[in-house]
């Protein structure tokens, strides 16, 4: 698209001073978000995805937090914008869909009231008009009998319905960026698909860009345009969906891809997993953070690998792994045509 990125994030860093030391939740995160694009941020739990997303909205400004880097949105610097400015942005320009629809709606307010309140806070619309808009919104996100449900309380709605209400709430002021923080984790699989398609079709209708935070690669394959893989606060690989799924460069990505069940492959006896746990963000290993869990570790991994394009002719596919591209392509092949974390050459024979 010619209009240039909507959101430009450069070297974003977030650290919290905690009892166990300085927790670096986000470290050197750099990406662009283009209008109308769905960017998926994937990674294990506790690797800084949510903190990154919340930081963009200024929701992590705790007294013990420190920020680095920049995040430009329409000429505004989000990281050090005033609270007053941010309040105008939140909801109206950048909206968020939360993980758990069960607890993200105020239990004692009718759902309609909650959305009307939001609309009126940002735009001086008369109550009757706002109400009409709410009914249309609820209808658009696929709530049956939307007009009657404007007056429903959250406890009268199912989880999927509530998530739809949350989406309607997020869309109510026509935001240009929608941040969805694991919008489907609390829902069952059939509803997940519906909600995802809802988000996708709303993206198509409104042209809003979406940042989708998730740990579910199935979800990503479904709707994302581009993927950023995060590990221990850093983006370790970034590229288009096709690039990430068919030519992944970072062993962590291989591990993620190798540990999902796929209907188009024979089922392995045991689902492969990445051994070990992500490091504590207060005490991360030097150099490449994935080093202790990576079977392909070698001397160079003690230096921090930069996030750069390593494949000739593909400037859009960035990763943080020192291995030569050809060797990666060889090592990630656990079975012909199948990607996995693999073993170190030689170790397999033992």
């Amino acid at each position: 698209m010619s209009s240039g990125p909507l959101l430009t994030v450069r070297d974003l860093g977030v650290s919290f001073t905690a009892e166990e030391g300085v927790v670096r939740a986000v470290d050197g995160v750099t990406f662009d978000l283009l209008p109308g694009e769905v960017l998926a941020v994937v990674g294990e739990s506790g690797c800084g995805k949510s903190v990154m997303a919340m930081t963009l909205m200024g929701l992590t400004r705790f007294p013990n937090a420190r920020f680095e880097g920049t995040a430009h949105y329409k000429g505004l610097e989000l990281i050090d914008a005033g609270e007053e400015e941010l309040r105008r942005i939140r909801g109206a320009e950048i909206a968020m869909i939360f993980q758990d629809p069960m607890s993200s709606l105020n239990p004692v307010m009718r759902v309609g009231e909650q959305i009307i309140e939001q609309i009126q806070a940002h735009e001086g619309v008369p109550a009757t008009e706002a109400r009409e808009r709410v009914a249309q919104l609820l209808d658009r996100v696929g709530i049956p009998r939307a007009r009657d449900r404007v007056d429903a309380y959250p406890f009268e709605l199912s989880g999927g319905m509530r998530q739809r209400v949350m989406i309607a709430l997020a869309l109510s002021c026509g935001p240009s960026v929608l941040i969805a923080d694991e919008p489907t984790t609390a829902l069952d699989v059939t509803i997940q698909a519906q909600i995802l398609h809802q988000i996708q079709s709303l993206r198509d209708e409104t042209g809003a860009a979406v940042i989708l935070v998730t740990h579910d690669l199935g979800v990503v394959a479904e709707i994302a345009d581009r993927i950023a893989v995060m590990y221990a606060g850093r983006i370790v690989e970034q590229g288009t969906v096709n690039a990430i799924f068919y030519d992944p460069q970072h062993p962590y990505t291989w591990g993620l891809l190798g540990s999902i069940t796929r209907v188009d492959r024979a089922r392995p006896e045991r689902l492969p997993a990445i051994a070990g746990l992500p490091p504590s963000l207060a005490d991360r290993p030097e150099g490449c953070h994935f080093r202790p869990r990576c079977p392909h570790e070698f001397d160079r991994c003690r230096d921090v690998p930069p996030l750069v394009a390593r494949i000739d002719g593909d400037d859009d596919h960035l990763d943080r792994c020192w291995l030569p591209v050809e060797e990666k392509r060889e090592r990630r092949e656990v079975r012909p045509g199948e990607i996995g974390l693999g073993r170190k050459p030689g170790a397999a024979a033992a």
Binding site: R90, S103, S104, N106, A121
Partner: peptide, 17 residues
């Protein structure tokens, strides 16, 4: 600390609201 307060903050609500 409940999520809906966080959600309200994400919608641009100030402390008084």
């Amino acid at each position: 600390e409940r999520d809906f307060v966080e959600a309200a903050r994400a919608q641009g609500a100030g402390p008084v609201r």
